[in-house]
Nucleic acid binder design. Structure first.
Lengths: 349, 349
DNA sequence: TTCTGCGATGAATGCGCATTCAATATCATG
DNA sequence: CATGATATTGAATGCGCATTCATCGCAGAA
């Protein structure tokens, strides 16, 4: 099948102008007479011509330091997680709104991030967003040397050339502990992830910090992997042991829901009467009538808008500085944490 | 900053060979001596050279009908929906496994699909996957004329050049009706989507067909938009009217969970004692201990593998035919549909 | 030894476009 | 009407690579 695609030359011929004119007709701000542009656009319309973005990025290659492909690489782990799906959805819309395209790569582990980035770089991406993962020192250098701005979302990095947008995990942990302490709990458990995981580590750190202020420490610590299933199992383990907690703080809503379903529907415990439960993220299902999970909300819309804006700024202006932006989380009071009767409060500890 | 990137010429110079040799070193199957290839690869390694995929696709432009960019465009609506998130995650992994890259585009409505596809086509994608949306006749033609294979997932289309992978929605609806009838229900409601929506229409069609066989029809029909919130509201409306159903079939699990939470936690009804409920999809949260939603499962892993394989086949071999593949759904019995005591069954109606 | 054939190699070319540079057209001003 | 200034235009060029074409060299055949 001979189906050579329509090029600017075809349009030029049809419109009776030069190829340059066609190119200019499609370049905002180019020096071209209105009449000519119209003529070209009409011809293009008729032929069904669309500029070839690939060729376009080839020819702009010389422009400055590196070519602009108009594509942003996004590397994500655990896309199946509702929290990430939401995040990606927002990233996608925000990038699109500014005319950028998203080249998506899914990885299973931190170890694959470098490979993914390598693959993406072959496509001359103009920037990269990495969700909940870090970049090796080596790749950080490579990106810097190629002038590719990196945006870490949900992870902080102090390296130069690497921006990040994160929630204040430590403060979030503190808020959670605060609430549980106010409600009078003193046998509090924590369900987090692997100690490798920065997010969980920080949330736990803030949490324990606050407990320590009252001379306490978690009565139990369980480890999950941010999935519902792991949360459920953690919940089951928590209450299989003798030292049962009277409150549980989970490093994510998904895990908190796992705990909630386990204790309420499998163990028959009452929440919040038998135990209080607090999560982190405020995913949509936390607000479902049967859950009403008390949690720490991440302002993800704002966070993502900020992340995209920062990245775009750096892609468009290579002088722009990389920086870390930390957002505060906020406590969302729902029904899984025991309420203290006002009046005779504040005399717990 | 002068940071011209490393090109094949740089590597050629370093390795003491011609640029052609470098190109060949990176092209599997090219005619090149082993020693030369090794020499080139070593030099490339040292310089940190990676072939430029963009330039690569430029130069292969002449090869046959159109250039191979190695990218597949994916257009998705409602990425925030857990069902879609899962789907995208699988697509991403499957495509990657075969060496393809995913250029993701999120749209809000059917109307934006054409624009999205146009944008994607500028990137010379080799194929396109459209989730839960259709393609206009115009764009169908455009894709055919450019030789871009189209894969519709979750929508069927008979157009030539357009493949699709779908679940057998009609049969699924029938299965659901079957089960509810066997359980002795006769005041059955349906919660679906807009009549524009093929999926919901088909599920409903199969469902009603089965009811008609028993001389019945839905006592109520509610419309949602596949979100939890819309399901919840539909549930509330269903039971606000006098003709209360004794069973509800929802066109999706997410909506079914909306109904479940509404009736169980807001209206205080018992499921399945006061009403039976059945969903469609079998999303992970349908299996949570507090839900145990009876549903029709879609074999999404298999479906997606098939979709990717079919598309890849068509991208690699332009002779390959487009076709529609329909997968059967299967009934997953959990706890939201009343069980019939065996023995004195079958005498319901 | 000479000839044939094939694997390996490099020079040259073009993919489709944006951009530079030089040439021309148009305009306002004196 | 002349003149410089400005707005348009087209020809030519190169982005980085794969591929074609013409050589070259070498191994095995005669």
């Amino acid at each position: 099948m001979k189906r050579r695609s329509i090029t600017s030359y075809d349009v030029a011929r049809a419109a009776g102008v030069s190829q340059s004119a066609v190119s200019r007709a499609f370049s905002p701000g180019a020096s071209i007479a209105d009449a000519t542009r119209k003529k070209v656009l009409r011809a293009a319309q008729e032929l069904g011509y669309q500029p070839n973005a690939i060729a376009r990025s080839m020819s702009t290659a010389r422009k400055d330091d590196h070519q602009k492909s108009g594509m942003v690489g996004v590397i994500v782990t655990r896309l199946e997680d509702p929290f990430f799906a939401h995040t990606i959805a927002h990233f996608s819309r925000n990038l699109q709104a500014q005319g950028w395209h998203m080249l998506l790569f899914t990885v299973d582990s931190q170890a694959q991030v470098d490979d993914a980035l390598n693959a993406l770089m072959q496509y001359q991406i103009d920037g990269v967003i990495i969700l909940s993962a870090l970049l090796s020192n080596h790749m950080t250098k490579v990106c810097r040397s190629k002038g590719i701005p990196v945006m870490l979302y949900n992870r902080s990095a102090a390296e130069s050339g690497v921006s990040s947008v994160v929630i204040d995990n430590r403060e979030g942990g503190r808020l959670a502990a605060d609430l549980l302490r106010e409600a009078g709990h003193d046998r509090i458990a924590f369900v987090g992830a692997d100690t490798e995981d920065e997010t969980s580590r920080e949330r736990r750190a803030g949490f324990e910090e606050r407990l320590r202020a009252d001379g306490l420490s978690p009565v139990q610590v369980e480890t999950g992997d941010y999935t519902f299933v792991s949360g459920r199992e953690a919940g089951l383990r928590l209450f299989a042991r003798s030292e049962r907690p009277d409150a549980v703080f989970c490093a994510s809503d998904v895990m908190a829901l796992g705990v909630l379903h386990a204790v309420r529907f499998e163990l028959g415990l009452r929440v919040p009467q038998d135990l209080s439960l607090i999560g982190f993220d405020d995913i949509p299902s936390a607000a479902w009538p049967g859950h009403l999970l008390t949690t720490i909300r991440q302002p993800i819309r704002r966070m993502i808008r900020e992340a995209v804006d920062m990245l775009v700024e750096r892609m468009e202006n290579s002088e722009a500085e990389a920086k870390i932006t930390r957002f505060p989380g906020s406590l969302i009071l729902r029904d899984t944490v025991r309420r203290i009767d006002t009046g005779q409060t504040k005399n717990e500890t």
